[in-house]
Design a protein around this nucleic acid. Structure first.
Lengths: 188, 188, 188, 188
DNA sequence: CATGAATGAGGGTTCATTCAT
DNA sequence: GATGAATGAACCCTCATTCAT
């Protein structure tokens, strides 16, 4: 009997993420993944029919976990600014907490492995965030701006700042500045 | 003497950038570069002793051109906000105008080819931008924030928004919003 | 006891033949055979200790059925030419009727799977045909020729012509020409 | 300067044929071909972009040599029977002389490597033989039979008998019987 | 300097076979 | 007996780099 959360798929996903962290996406070979997961090369192919499938499924999985994290509680009946702050903090926290996942997310998107269907599959996940921003505009708290533009801004900004913060010895100094900067940028 | 801008090195650089645009960094092989530049494979190795050297030197070159563009006129005797706006616009314009260069910049940074010395070599180039932001803080126009933090913010934000804008049919709608958003984010 | 023709061995044989027809001998993998036979991969190894053994045993089985077909009634008390004609027609009919078997027979013989013992095992099956031809020579109806030479001739000729006929929209035109051609070739 | 007939392509072709003779077509790996030709694996790919291309080009080349051999002198102004005999003998001689080529020809045709274009490319080569047989029918020396049917007969018969003869200690006994048997089979 | 054929290590993938359940 | 996940050797192919011309 396997412990919770240790299916072979997850084993392989974990191995892949660890590898991406260590050597980058391009350093990920199927053999290396197998070795990292302590299984045979061929075993990986039982669960994923190709490297492309492995990476794309991992991407969707991570994106799901990511959007799950930042979407949580976004439609609660609370003042807009409170939810906005929470969202920014969740966003940042995910990036800081799940370093390998973040690295993978960034590197995969500009890799030759991405398939169109994967891009499609992850698009819908932005819905809750999108609705929150809409609400902000309706309440005349946010600028009148293309919502996709705002999302792009948030993603790029927080993602980049997370990378910066991660390298600092004392992170606390910065974490609060992130949501402030985002708020000031978008507020009316 | 060849005409301006047509040394062999530049020929190879151009070929590399065109290739990155077409097939991504991972699709760039030395043979493809040579073919694109219409020279022999071996010739590339006369000018660059390895693929790593070629890419790193190209990176430094592009970064130089990039920071040259955005640093231009930053120390002129003009009101801070004017210079800030100009810098943001130059920043964005570079990303929109030099598409292959931008792609390369982004993809290279997360590749296994980057060497430590390259990262070091490009760090100093931020000086003019850094000084501008310092001035903003001195003039009490910008928030009291780590300058590197601000630079990271600007880079991530503008870079990401440029990518978004590039995909839009009508770009004019967005270009002015970029500097505004950056200003609001950082201003006191 | 299972119903006629449904032992596991036969199930596997059938699956193999169907596969050979669809994808050729080189496309036959043990996993594919198992799937086609709707059993587990490991189960195949209970009945055949290796792929080699499976194929060789199938070969002998098919050859047995084949020679059974063409040997039937060859020693009856009828005029030689009548039996010769019958044999030729049976030969051809088998090739036309049992397509997968024929494909397999041809492809297996030039494969790396054939073992010496299999070749030996099938040699004796030629006895009835051999005796018929001997009789033809004794009755001075056939040329004085090495019997093995004659058998080789018949096999090559009919096999090849069967392949040709199979591809024709109207087969009837040709079937009668086969035995005639063989008769003329060998008759004194 | 290379000696006549020793281009790299021919070197690789030779190596391939030798391998096919030794271990059969399915035993032919690109690495084995390279080793046999005493070159590096990658070198093979300079001359042939894939295993499929290598084998198909070799097939066309061998077929060309083969049909060149048997077509030679077929339209000379000589009695039909003389030419028919010559053709049969050339046919047989090729099979006996170029053993590896023959093995390859047979095994390749039933392999997953054959492409439609290769089959097409070799079809036209039968023209001279086809015309000879037509002439035989016109002169009322051959049976009124589909020419393609006759060609199939000749190919299957001679090919098979060649295989038989090759295994005999004394071959001379049989070589003359081949053309006789073919003649008797097809003559009116 | 310039060329481009040659090299061979390494990557993705398949598949015969084994073995714990 | 039956299962099918697991193994790992072997295969096809790519590409950074070298070197004889």
């Amino acid at each position: 009997m396997k412990g919770k959360g240790s299916t072979k798929e997850e084993l392989i996903f974990d191995a892949t993420l660890r590898l991406v962290e260590q050597v980058g996406l391009s350093g990920v070979s199927m053999e290396a993944v197998a070795k990292q997961a302590k299984i045979a090369t061929g075993t990986v192919y039982i669960y994923f029919k190709s490297k492309e499938e492995l990476l794309n499924k991992l991407y969707v999985t991570v994106k799901l976990k990511f959007y799950g994290t930042i979407s949580d509680g976004l439609n609660e009946d609370k003042p807009f600014k409170v939810l906005f702050k929470k969202m920014c903090n969740d966003y940042l926290r995910f990036f800081l907490e799940y370093y390998p996942e973040t690295i993978f997310l960034q590197q995969f998107y500009n890799s030759p492995y991405v398939t169109a269907s994967t891009v499609d599959a992850t698009k819908g996940l932005l819905q809750p965030l999108s609705e929150l921003l809409q609400r902000g505009k309706t309440e005349m708290l946010l600028k009148e701006m293309d919502t996709r533009f705002m999302i792009t801004f948030l993603h790029g900004t927080i993602g980049q700042l997370a990378g910066f913060i991660r390298d600092q010895p004392v992170q606390k100094t910065y974490t609060d500045q992130v949501w402030t900067i985002c708020w000031d940028a978008l507020k009316l």
